[in-house]
């Protein structure tokens, strides 16, 4: 039988762990709230760019831009993978990385055919360990990232497409479904072939703009911006999922600690009861022997 003191220490340490996980759960919940506010604040920017780009793409058919067209030959595919810097968030990173890894193995024969742009320490370590080509990396992003923090990496990634280092670029990240659920999603970032079709489908009635100096120049400027803003949007989405994942991971850790404490308390009481019973038996036995 486990001795009383030992059980008591274990109850104590489990309680302390529970306090920590509980605190982390609440911190994550607060951060999740702020991440959602941030996503909301970003929405008008993205919508507006899309509206204008869409109306240009839809309005005048002569206007074309390399970013709007599929390349004939895909020599190298870029994957922009958004992971977190820290763990303790359940299957948040492992699920995403596993899926990305399998997809890459499936699609490509050699490492010349793809390149990885990685956000977050966990993902960087993962791909580094497997010797996969990391073209760019950024770690240590703030919990509520500012646009300026990822501007460089977004710009360079878009530039790599323009310079034909990449012929297409995908974003892999955890999409925020709810605080409890995240879904691994792959979105095609470049070329922006879906854009014109989407604009057509929605058929937003936009006024006939004058383009100053001309539509082509505006596309030239706007499309990279749009692509960059999509990267930022995915990052915000991923951050929200990260906090959601961490929150639910910490919640289940707290629940586990609770049931563990219950179990331990039960066996503590049993052990205590047994000790008392034994003591009484001994006294009674002793009295009877003297008898």
């Amino acid at each position: 039988m486990a001795n009383l003191k030992e059980i008591k220490t274990r109850i104590g340490s489990t309680k302390k762990t529970k306090q920590i996980t509980k605190a982390m759960e609440m911190v994550s919940a607060a951060k999740l709230n702020r991440a959602q506010d941030k996503t909301e604040a970003f929405q008008p920017y993205k919508d507006k760019i899309r509206e204008v780009v869409g109306s240009i793409a839809q309005g005048s058919e002569e206007v074309s831009h390399p970013m709007l067209q599929d390349r004939k030959e895909i020599r190298r595919t870029g994957y922009l993978v958004i992971t977190s810097d820290r763990g303790l968030c359940g299957a948040y990173n492992s699920g995403l990385l596993r899926e990305t890894y399998n997809l890459i193995q499936e699609r490509h024969q050699s490492s010349d055919e793809y390149g990885i742009v990685i956000l977050g320490k966990v993902g960087r370590d993962f791909f580094q360990k497997r010797g996969m080509p990391i073209m760019q990396e950024i770690t240590g992003l703030a919990d509520q990232p500012e646009y300026s923090e990822i501007k460089n990496i977004a710009e360079t990634t878009v530039q790599m497409f323009t310079d034909e280092v990449f012929d297409e670029v995908y974003i892999h990240h955890n999409h925020f479904v709810s605080a409890m659920t995240q879904r691994v999603t792959e979105t095609k970032l470049l070329p922006l072939t879906a854009l014109a079709a989407e604009a057509e489908a929605e058929a937003v009635s936009t006024p006939d703009y004058i383009y100053e100096p001309d539509a082509e120049t505006i596309l030239e400027r706007l499309l990279p911006h749009y692509a960059e803003s999509l990267i930022f949007g995915s990052l915000l989405d991923a951050k929200a999922s990260e906090f959601g994942a961490r929150m639910s991971a910490m919640r289940s850790a707290t629940d586990n600690a609770d049931s563990r404490i219950d179990d331990l308390t039960l066996s503590y009481n049993r052990a205590r009861q047994a000790a008392i019973t034994q003591e009484i038996n001994e006294i009674v036995g002793g009295a009877a022997a003297q008898g």
Binding site: V52, T217, L222
Partner: peptide, 17 residues
């Protein structure tokens, strides 16, 4: 990108970098 531009109410729809 081409210079200063002032907009008053009731301007014609326009897009410019």
């Amino acid at each position: 990108i081409d210079g200063e531009l002032g907009i008053l109410p009731n301007h014609i729809p326009l897009v410019t970098p």
